[in-house]
Design a binder for these strands. Structure first.
Lengths: 217, 217
DNA sequence: CCGATAAATCTTGTATACAAGATTGTTATT
DNA sequence: AATAACAATCTTGTATACAAGATTTATCGG
């Protein structure tokens, strides 16, 4: 572990996995000892992390792992919901041939994860893969990547929800319904479907009560 | 002119105004002499400029003002169009009381700019103000700011179009129509209106022919 | 003259010493 | 004991010397 890209990836994944909890101090000197590298390249990494909202830099005071910003979460859900409605409607008009196969394979893997115990991580990964593939098939990978750069708060928010199996099944089934709409060229139900799919599990109160010290006030 | 924020603002505005042309080399030593500051803080500025696509950093080679990426322009227009359809529909359902006055005042100023000669800059500024205010009234300033961080290519693209007066009048009139839809709670025409408004002046060929050396290949 | 190789000179990347602000702890005074 | 002033020690911010890669120039051989 020595170059900047690796260090950044490492810190990002620790923050997203909540191993580095919101509020944790990331001091330059401590990190430079941990990664055996000088402060200068480390500052590059921290600068980028702050631009992507992983950390907050307080000049001459220190760097804190950012608290989860529920407003940001709501805004990103609105953005994703709006965009995905449009993208899925586009796909219902025309989709690349390979699309049906790719999406079906992902749904199979996700179904597998629903059945397994302790497969929460895998489930979320296949969930992401499904949505990312929708963007890609519509030629909107650019916008998927743009969203990812602002998704720290949303990703951590979602990870804190431990969803019951029935909920996982519902999510997976809704994916199936989306694919059905696309293949049947049925634009009618898409808006409501996508809106429900992305807004359903907003439960700010649950987080406020159980993880108050992770949340931005 | 000495602190980092000022330097960044200065470089951003020179790039957006195309005073710094795409492809121009921004060497650290040259900039450090110009701004009378050492390379370290300058590198912070350049890092951020690259993350917002103002420049491209080629490691150990140099920093170039980025070429205008027409794909990015198209993607951002799709994003804005999709979002603004939703936002204006939201406003047609409910808008803060102050909204009507604020938007009307902006439209007046923009009308003034249409009449004046050589008011192209002012026209574009009021155009931006109108759209920004729509976002703000809908409680979506967060998303407006997000878009701005990826707008280098779109802003420069739009600036290269020298629009005729008839075109300016059309743009301004469409703004008026949008406001009418909102106040009349008329959701019907919004989709088509917004789509036409943002997609109309895509004329990649014009740029390709007249500013080929500004465009990313 | 042409081409290849090497050297000089660009560029940015990294390490580190020092500057300066913020916080903490201590001490003196009431 | 409480408070104010000061000092020590944290933190990050900046300047600069040096390292290392990339490019250009020069030199030498054919």
């Amino acid at each position: 572990m020595s170059n900047k890209a690796e260090i950044m990836q490492q810190l990002k994944s620790e923050i997203l996995a909540l191993n580095l909890k919101p509020g944790t101090i990331l001091s330059e000197t401590a990190l430079s000892e941990r990664f055996q590298i000088s402060r200068t390249p480390l500052r590059d990494v921290l600068k980028q992390l702050s631009l992507e909202s992983y950390i907050d830099i307080y000049p001459k005071k220190g760097n804190l792992v950012s608290f989860i910003d529920l407003d940001s979460v709501e805004q990103m859900i609105y953005l994703r919901s709006t965009l995905e409605k449009e993208i899925i409607k586009d796909l219902a008009v025309q989709m690349p041939l390979r699309g049906n196969l790719e999406l079906t394979q992902i749904l199979d893997k996700q179904q597998e994860a629903v059945q397994r115990e302790n497969a929460h991580e895998a489930f979320l990964a296949w969930d992401d893969a499904f949505h990312k593939t929708l963007f890609a098939l519509a030629g909107r990978e650019f916008l998927w990547n743009l969203i990812q750069q602002y998704n720290v708060h949303y990703i951590r928010y979602r990870r804190l929800h431990l969803l019951k199996r029935e909920k996982l099944e519902e999510i997976r089934d809704e994916h199936q319904l989306m694919l059905d709409c696309i293949t049947n060229h049925n634009q009618e139900s898409i808006e409501e479907l996508v809106h429900h799919h992305l807004h359903e599990d907003i439960n700010a109160r649950y987080l406020q009560e159980n993880f108050a010290d992770y949340i931005k006030k």
